[in-house]
Amino acid sequence: GSKLPPGWEKRMSRSSGRVYYFNHITNASQWERPSG
């Protein structure tokens, strides 16, 4: 298991139950796992 880039964390969408990734530094969110 590799770590996520700085700022990123795994989140669960309440509406759909899907996992997404959220960056608390930039407030960005995306479905794809961030690389870096």
Rank of each mutant, 00 (worst) to 15 (best):
G1I: 11
G1Y: 06
G1A: 12
G1H: 11
G1M: 09
G1F: 07
G1E: 14
G1S: 12
S2H: 12
S2K: 10
S2Y: 14
S2I: 13
S2L: 11
S2Q: 11
K3H: 12
K3M: 13
K3G: 14
K3P: 15
K3R: 12
K3Y: 13
K3F: 12
L4W: 04
L4N: 01
L4I: 04
L4P: 15
L4S: 03
P5I: 03
P5Q: 03
P5Y: 03
P5V: 02
P5G: 05
P5K: 02
P6F: 13
P6Y: 14
P6S: 08
P6H: 10
G7H: 10
G7R: 02
G7F: 07
G7E: 05
G7D: 04
G7P: 07
W8D: 00
W8G: 00
W8V: 01
W8K: 00
E9M: 07
E9H: 10
E9K: 06
E9P: 01
E9R: 07
K10W: 07
K10A: 13
K10I: 15
K10P: 08
K10V: 14
K10Q: 14
K10H: 05
R11Y: 07
R11V: 06
R11Q: 03
R11D: 01
R11T: 02
M12Q: 09
M12A: 08
M12F: 15
M12Y: 15
M12N: 07
M12D: 04
M12S: 07
M12R: 14
S13Q: 12
S13E: 13
S13G: 06
S13L: 13
S13A: 10
S13N: 09
R14W: 08
R14Q: 12
R14K: 13
R14L: 13
R14E: 11
R14S: 12
R14P: 14
R14A: 13
S15D: 11
S15N: 12
S15H: 14
S15E: 11
S15I: 14
S15A: 12
S16V: 07
S16K: 09
S16L: 10
G17T: 04
G17S: 06
G17M: 06
G17I: 03
G17D: 05
G17E: 04
G17N: 10
G17K: 09
G17A: 06
R18N: 05
R18G: 04
R18T: 05
R18S: 04
R18M: 06
R18P: 01
R18E: 06
R18D: 04
V19M: 08
V19K: 03
V19A: 08
V19N: 04
V19I: 14
Y20R: 02
Y20S: 00
Y20P: 00
Y20H: 02
Y21K: 00
Y21W: 07
Y21Q: 00
Y21M: 00
Y21I: 00
Y21N: 00
Y21H: 00
Y21G: 00
Y21T: 00
F22H: 07
F22S: 01
F22T: 01
F22I: 06
F22K: 03
F22M: 02
F22V: 05
N23A: 02
N23E: 01
N23F: 04
N23P: 00
N23H: 04
N23T: 01
N23M: 02
N23C: 09
H24F: 14
H24S: 12
H24E: 06
H24I: 15
H24Y: 15
H24P: 09
H24L: 13
I25L: 10
I25N: 08
I25F: 12
I25G: 05
I25E: 09
I25R: 08
T26H: 04
T26E: 04
T26D: 04
T26K: 03
T26R: 03
T26V: 03
T26A: 04
N27H: 15
N27I: 05
A28R: 15
A28P: 01
A28M: 15
A28H: 14
A28N: 09
A28L: 13
S29A: 14
S29E: 06
S29F: 15
Q30P: 00
Q30R: 05
Q30T: 05
Q30M: 06
Q30N: 03
Q30I: 04
W31K: 06
W31L: 08
W31I: 07
W31V: 06
W31G: 03
W31D: 05
W31N: 05
W31F: 10
E32Q: 11
E32D: 10
E32Y: 08
E32V: 07
E32A: 09
R33K: 10
R33S: 07
R33Y: 13
R33L: 11
R33P: 12
R33E: 10
R33H: 12
R33A: 10
R33M: 10
P34G: 01
P34F: 02
P34K: 01
P34Y: 01
P34S: 02
P34C: 04
S35R: 09
S35G: 13
S35L: 12
S35T: 13
S35A: 11
G36V: 13
G36C: 14
G36H: 12
G36F: 14
G36K: 09
G36Q: 11
